[in-house]
Amino acid sequence: MIEVNNIGFSYLISSQKILNGISFKIHQGEIFGFLGPSGAGKSTTQKILYKILHGYTGEIKIAKKPLHDWDKSYLEKIGVGFEFPNHYLKLTGRENLQLFGSFYNANKLKPIPELFELVGIQDAIDKKVATYSKGMKMRLNFIRAIMHEPDILFFDEPTAGLDPGNAHKIKMYIKQLKEQGKTIFITTHNMNTADELCDRVSFINEGTLQITDTPQALKSRHGKHTVSVLLKNKMQQEFPLKNLGTNPEFLSFINSQEVEKIQTMEATLEEVFLKVTGKTLN
């Protein structure tokens, strides 16, 4: 659905290259993520894709058609969840969606009350957005991004600044969108978000992509291939995953006492990131 080939970009004022030969593909129905520290170029890449930034080098194709050949019908097709809440504070939530919704094809618009219910802020629908909490504003961002049934969705840091409960809800909605066949591109510097949500993730650092794979593959490739067993009497031991079921030491260990916990010793995405880029995520 989205093909990005070797793009480079620099902002006019600073001649420094912000993006340096970035390439990736996002398939239809996939959640693809950029994981990287602040200033890596995540938002910049998304802004190029939703046509706010021009003057990039390289090639971008959307549904096999070069991005610059798309007219404004492209903007009907995409939805953007911005990094920070941005609404008319003096208008109510409903009025905000009415105003922006009026620019889209009316046949495709979802009913506004339904959208508010979806994210659980229906009680605030007729309140001024100025009175909303940060989490409510972010959920309003979210439903504004999806109200016109776009095929492609960009979410820039969808869980940043949200408490775990709200972050979890947003992740659930994004998964639902994937189930409806939407193509989804998220950015994050939160390894849990990347891990739970993304089918594939790219590590981005200083404007280059270091590695792209499924979170699972990244974690197991860079982790230890062992399982750690903790017994009720606090005895703990590690065993190789290979031939685990027939490993006599393992079998006698788990039979010696009641087992408290068994876990594989794969790396977290954060550890993998550090290993690959030599940098931490924050």
Binding site: Y50, I52, K72, L75, I78, F82, P85, N86
Partner: peptide, 14 residues
């Protein structure tokens, strides 16, 4: 200032 301009940037208008 409020970032609403960004929303106009992605609306399907020339």
């Amino acid at each position: 200032e409020t970032g609403v301009a960004k929303v106009y940037g992605i609306l399907p208008v020339n």
